[in-house]
């Protein structure tokens, strides 16, 4: 570590004192660098989750904010703590919630699979391209990722609508007489998720494949392995970290997606992110909305931990500690 290699002092002051002062200065400076973003994230990212957890254990109340207090002081001395699990019981009893959770998981698993199916050969194609083509291809994968997510979803509204581009094209070609209903169906939601999340699948896969040792494929070919056999025995297992990272990067946010089911699914596709938003905005039932969020978080904690593990492994590998 460069931070540990202090300049060697020679002269009037003994080495020990100088290096101790320097080290102290250095450690103070280090703590500020760590503390500022740490405190920010602690305050605005971690602490809010505890408040959500707290409210999920409260009751709906006619007050502002509309939930009961967890800790109440009587005469300023007696403390009562009220914790109710009614909101969770309500979520588990009402089949609407169970169905919506399962539907969200189903939609995001199937979408993730299609992203992988399309993204894997694309990433592999980029790796196999020449240096200039590689740069251009990467740029064209990243570009849509930078343009507005909302507008990319909106673009599909125009394509899939009853009088939209696709139906118009099919009718003018004489393939169909009546427009096919595509917008406001589950099909539209699948298209929307695969379309907007595809770059999230391709980029981690590309990063992983880029590190592959091409000589392994050569060796396999020399030993008489066919391309399909080599793919399943060598390429696929070695790109597993990329597959896992890319899939989780699609699966986790897609499960809680709000915009896509709302705009492309209309009222016909219920996903948990949309239910949560509506619970909150229309019904103003905060305790239930918070409980819905906590259950969603519980479902996603394991995938998130796996993702962080893969991320952490990748970054620790290069810090060389």
């Amino acid at each position: 570590m460069s931070m540990e290699t202090l300049p060697k002092q020679s002269g009037l002051i003994p080495d020990g004192i100088v290096s101790r002062i320097l080290r102290q200065l250095q450690s103070g400076w280090r703590s500020i660098v760590i503390a500022v973003p740490f405190v920010w994230l602690f305050l605005f990212f971690l602490a809010p989750f505890f408040i959500v957890a707290k409210i999920s254990l409260a009751e709906l109340a006619i007050s502002s904010p509309p939930f009961s207090k967890m800790i109440e002081w009587t005469d300023g001395t007696i403390m009562t703590i009220r914790v109710v699990f009614d909101n969770f019981a309500y979520i588990f009893d009402d089949p609407l919630y169970a169905r919506t959770y399962i539907n969200s998981l189903k939609i995001s698993i199937i979408s993730t699979f299609f992203c992988l199916l399309i993204g894997y050969p694309m990433a592999y194609g980029i790796v196999r391209s020449g240096p200039v083509a590689k740069r251009l291809l990467l740029f064209s994968i990243i570009l849509p990722f930078w343009t507005s997510f909302l507008l990319r979803v909106y673009a599909w509204m125009g394509l899939l609508a009853d009088q939209g581009t696709i139906n118009g094209f099919l009718i003018s070609m004489g393939i169909i007489d009546e427009p096919i209903r595509m917008l406001y169906t589950e099909f539209a939601v699948y298209i929307g998720i695969v379309y907007t999340y595809l770059p999230f699948m391709i980029l981690p896969l590309y990063a992983n494949m880029e590190k592959l040792d091409a000589t392994l494929n050569e060796a396999a070919a020399d030993l008489g392995s066919g391309p399909i056999n080599t793919f399943f025995k060598i390429t696929l297992p070695l790109t597993m970290p990329g597959i896992i990272a890319g899939s989780l990067l699609v699966f986790i946010p897609a499960t809680g997606e709000y915009v896509i089911p709302d705009l492309l699914g209309g009222g016909n596709v219920q996903m948990i992110g949309r239910l949560l938003y509506n619970e909150f905005a229309r019904n103003i039932d905060w305790p239930v909305a918070c409980a819905v969020a906590i259950v969603l978080l519980m479902l996603l904690v394991l995938p998130m931990a796996i993702y962080q593990h893969y991320q952490g492994k990748a970054s620790e590998g290069v810090t060389g500690e």
């Binding site: 959500v52 946010p253 809680g256 992110g273 949560l276 905060w286 969603l296």
Partner: peptide, 15 residues
């Protein structure tokens, strides 16, 4: 990076 936006949004609002 991976947190569903509805959760981040809800938690910041109640915060």
């Amino acid at each position: 990076l991976v947190m569903p936006e509805v959760i981040t949004g809800l938690s910041l609002l109640v915060f």
